[in-house]
Simulated scan of single mutants.
Amino acid sequence: MAKTRHLLGISGGKDSAALAIYLNDKYPQFDFEYYFCDTGKELDETYQLINNLESYLGKSIKKLENPDIDSTGDNPFDFYYKSFRGYLPSPQARWCTALMKLKPFENFVNGDDAVSYVGIRGDEEREGYISKEANIQSIFPFRKNIWSSDVMTKVFQPENFEMVIDYFQSYYSGNDLDKLVDIFNEPISFDKNHKNEAEKILKRKANSSLDLGIARFNRGVFDFLKTTKYPLAKEIDYVLLENEDVLVRDDIFRILRESGVGVPEYYEKVEFEVDGQKGEYARSRSGCYFCFFQQKIEWVWLYEQHPDLFKKAMAYESEDDLFTWIPNETLKELIQPERIKQIKLGHINRTNKTKTKSSPYLLDILEGTERDGCNTCFL
């Protein structure tokens, strides 16, 4: 029987880097395979982070390549950009995600049973990347609930109730077992017409069950998985079942700094002044420097901190075809002095309204867009 592979993608972002460090230090028994999907349009800080990580981990991070692209002399983005005849990727047409991230990853897995470790934090509400391939299972070590939503759907399927509860009886008894049964008995419909409501109920069921004890809930789920075709069904035991750590943004920055790997410079806030008012900006994400999920203040950051890259981003736009990175606004229009002033003042006002004394990170202000976008790019 082929061995299950344990894979961890390095995006160049803070969360995936911290996850690699955390798991390496806490669970040295894992034989992780680290990989990086290079679009050819990353910031220099991304490559520096990867070099630092390789030194810390004592292991190489495999760059996933496409031989068909390599033979053309183009980098991945330019190859596909030409293939789409200048049609830029967008939230509605994320060909960049599909072709430069997911396709290379699934080719790398090559049909093997694999567990993919994803750095969604305990203070985030979003769900991470879940492959449609049955041989790839996602695990989220930073969260209270390490299991993906597809696993939770199977666990809480009403038709699986008797079988699942039978497994859980090995870990629950008395009042706790009664409480667990009540949680499972809460009505839920997985009809596609009630998707949003089902997601809310599913999350509530999972959280309520975990409140009765994280480790024993995990053990019950793990026993149930033995009846499925998930990659972890092959494992005799799994050390993360006992892990009750929940890591948030402050923990991520601490891990990066204490390890010596360091925080990518683009996360560090930079001061600016406009109309006598002082503000700060930074970048909220890893990934391509021209990512269309950026806030407009981040585009201004790119223009002022990396003018050469901003100029290259402008060159991809076509005003005649309405192919622009930002809907209804070209980068040429965005960098007009009055427009930059307007964007900066708006950012200062939003920051003053939402900034809290509990966190020193500007990223807390930018987190709205940090949670948007491609989960495989920005972890």
Rank of each mutant, 00 (worst) to 15 (best):
L8T: 00
G9R: 00
S11V: 03
K14G: 01
A20S: 09
Y22K: 12
L23R: 00
D25H: 04
Q29G: 09
C37L: 06
T39Y: 00
G40H: 11
N52K: 14
L53E: 00
I61T: 04
K63M: 13
K63H: 14
N75R: 12
N75L: 13
P76I: 07
F77T: 00
F77M: 04
D78P: 07
Y80V: 02
Y80Q: 01
S83Q: 14
S83W: 08
F84T: 04
L88M: 06
P91L: 10
F108T: 06
V109E: 02
A114W: 02
V115K: 03
S116Y: 12
V118Y: 03
G119S: 07
I120A: 02
D123C: 05
E124N: 11
E127H: 07
G128F: 03
I130S: 04
N135E: 09
Q137H: 05
F140H: 11
K144E: 14
K144I: 11
N145R: 05
S148L: 08
S148Q: 14
D150N: 15
T153C: 09
Q157D: 15
E162M: 09
Y172E: 01
S173V: 06
D178M: 11
K179H: 09
I183N: 02
F184G: 00
E186N: 10
I188D: 00
D191T: 10
D191E: 13
H194R: 12
L202S: 07
N207P: 03
D211F: 07
G213S: 08
D223I: 04
T227E: 15
K229L: 11
P231A: 07
K234L: 08
I236F: 07
L240V: 05
L241K: 08
N243E: 12
D245P: 12
V248T: 15
V248F: 14
D250G: 04
L256D: 01
L256Y: 05
R257A: 12
Y266M: 09
Y267S: 10
E273D: 10
G276V: 08
Y281G: 02
A282Q: 08
G287T: 01
Y289M: 04
F292W: 15
Q294Y: 13
K296W: 05
V300P: 01
W301M: 06
Q305P: 02
D308V: 15
D308E: 15
L309W: 04
A313Y: 05
S318N: 15
T324D: 05
L334W: 01
P337F: 07
P337E: 06
R339G: 02
I343Y: 04
N349R: 14
T351P: 00
T351Y: 07
T354Q: 13
T356Y: 00
P360M: 05
P360I: 11
R371K: 15
